[in-house]
């Protein structure tokens, strides 16, 4: 069952619109002309095996990687034309992108609140420390926290600017199931409050099933399936996402192309 899904708004331009996005390194194509969009208030899951192009896609959306082709529009503007303005209204958290381990939790949040131009920094940090149950760690070195606590600090940083678009790259990978569930709920509730959208990558099928309104499955840089969980169930005649995923990964290349369903 899904955890309180949000409907995408109709008639409002998408928060994120990706058109024919591609990334190649010499002879290796990592992302192969993918197109998708994320609506206001929507949570979209990006699934795929290792090397499918999920992280490269996320990094292109953060302008950490320059696309070889295609376009990225965020908040109706070309990312390449207003990088800083767009990045100020979105945020990102990933298990592999740690915050400085030798700074305290408060210091880390303070640095990033300056970078994101938060008006009342102290109040915002206090609010996030409370919401992510980090108040007692505020003076503690971030590197001394458990991986679950560090994930919470990373997520608190991601909410400093009340982002309208949040990119989460395997955010709960290092968490135990109960903490992961609590954090998923917290992230969903906070994004609901600002009608923000989330692009969420994970290897955890249950997590994607529970949290996402729509799912995009990548394989070898291509979108091989996308839709709501119900649509995917009907299309692949399988009960759960894991079975759908396994079936898709087993398909030969030509068959995969036929399964692509642009939204």
């Amino acid at each position: 069952m899904q955890e309180s899904r949000l409907p995408g708004s109709v008639g409002i331009p998408p928060i994120l619109k990706v058109t024919d996005l591609a990334k190649s390194y010499k002879h290796l194509t990592v992302v192969d002309r993918i197109s998708f969009q994320v609506e206001e208030g929507e949570v979209v899951g990006l699934l795929g095996p290792n090397g499918a192009g999920k992280t490269t896609t996320i990094h292109m959306l953060l302008s950490l990687v320059k696309p070889s082709g295609g376009s990225i529009q965020i908040f109706g503007q070309e990312l390449a034309k207003d990088r800083e303005g767009i990045l100020a209204r979105m945020n990102f958290a990933a298990g592999y992108a740690a915050l400085p381990y030798n700074l305290s939790v408060y210091e880390n949040l303070n640095i990033f609140s300056l970078l994101y131009g938060i008006p009342d920094r102290r109040a915002k940090i206090e609010q996030l420390l409370q919401e992510f149950q980090l108040t007692r760690f505020r003076k503690q070195r971030t590197g001394a926290l458990s991986s679950g606590e560090q994930t919470r600090v990373g997520l608190a940083k991601a909410f400093l600017n009340d982002p309208k678009l949040l990119l989460l790259d395997e955010p709960t990978a290092s968490l135990d199931p109960s903490i992961a569930r609590d954090l998923r709920a917290l992230v969903r509730n906070k994004m609901r409050a600002v009608q923000g959208a989330i692009l969420w990558t994970s290897h955890n099928m249950q997590e994607i099933e529970r949290v996402c309104d729509r799912i995009i499955i990548l394989k070898q840089g291509r979108i091989v399936a996308q839709g709501t969980l119900e649509q995917l169930r009907r299309q692949f005649e399988q009960d759960d996402l894991e079975e759908i995923f396994v079936a898709l990964m087993a398909l030969p290349e030509p068959a995969m192309e036929q399964t692509e369903r642009p939204r």
Partner: peptide, 18 residues
């Protein structure tokens, strides 16, 4: 290098910092 060692570089470059 301190930001490289603490694996913070992506957070820095993904922020609005020019």
């Amino acid at each position: 290098l301190e930001d490289v060692w603490s694996r913070n570089m992506l957070n820095v470059f993904a922020s609005p910092l020019r």
